[in-house]
Simulated scan of single mutants.
Amino acid sequence: MKVNLRAGSRVALVLLAFCSSLAARDLNQDEALALRQQGVILPLEDLLHQAMGRYPGSRLLEAELEKKHGRYAYEVELVTTEGVVREIKLDASTGVLIKDEED
């Protein structure tokens, strides 16, 4: 039985490209600013206020804007007054809570 490795390689590359397109992509600050100016996403300050309000007195560790499955989300990492690190994910266009879990 003879196998055409070239065809198999092409299929693998297509699958890899497809799967990569489904993975989350972090956006840089210029992209975030452009999306904000276009009205596609809410101001980061509003979403940070919402996230931090869930845990009064918490400190911000990190905030990232990502795009996954065509949807923009802010992932906010914070540390609570008890020293627990939380990961909060908010829809960047609507502010709806997607996830709040201990990290």
Score class of each variant (00 low, 15 high):
57 G>Q: 03
64 E>C: 01
84 V>E: 13
54 R>K: 11
89 K>R: 13
77 E>K: 10
75 E>S: 13
60 L>G: 11
64 E>S: 10
63 A>V: 15
73 A>V: 00
84 V>M: 09
90 L>H: 00
65 L>I: 13
60 L>W: 08
71 R>T: 03
87 E>L: 13
89 K>T: 11
68 K>V: 10
87 E>C: 12
63 A>F: 01
93 S>W: 05
90 L>N: 00
76 V>C: 09
76 V>Q: 05
92 A>C: 14
59 R>S: 15
76 V>W: 02
69 H>A: 15
90 L>G: 00
84 V>C: 05
66 E>D: 12
64 E>A: 05
57 G>F: 07
55 Y>A: 03
57 G>P: 10
61 L>D: 05
83 G>S: 04
61 L>N: 07
91 D>F: 04
91 D>M: 12
56 P>I: 06
85 V>A: 02
81 T>K: 10
86 R>Y: 03
54 R>T: 03
89 K>D: 01
59 R>F: 14
68 K>G: 10
75 E>F: 04
86 R>D: 04
60 L>Q: 12
61 L>W: 00
67 K>P: 06
78 L>F: 00
65 L>D: 12
63 A>R: 10
63 A>M: 07
71 R>A: 02
91 D>Q: 08
79 V>G: 00
80 T>N: 03
81 T>A: 12
83 G>L: 04
81 T>I: 13
82 E>P: 05
84 V>T: 14
61 L>H: 03
74 Y>T: 09
58 S>D: 07
65 L>E: 11
68 K>L: 06
69 H>P: 04
83 G>I: 07
76 V>S: 07
73 A>H: 00
72 Y>H: 14
82 E>H: 06
89 K>M: 08
72 Y>W: 12
92 A>I: 14
87 E>W: 11
60 L>I: 10
77 E>D: 10
79 V>Q: 01
66 E>K: 12
72 Y>D: 10
79 V>D: 00
69 H>L: 15
60 L>S: 10
92 A>W: 00
77 E>W: 01
55 Y>S: 03
57 G>D: 05
89 K>S: 04
70 G>W: 11
92 A>D: 06
84 V>R: 08
63 A>G: 05
75 E>V: 13
62 E>I: 04
68 K>E: 15
58 S>K: 03
68 K>I: 06
68 K>W: 01
75 E>Q: 14
93 S>F: 07
62 E>S: 15
86 R>F: 05
68 K>M: 11
83 G>D: 07
80 T>F: 03
72 Y>K: 08
88 I>F: 08
88 I>W: 03
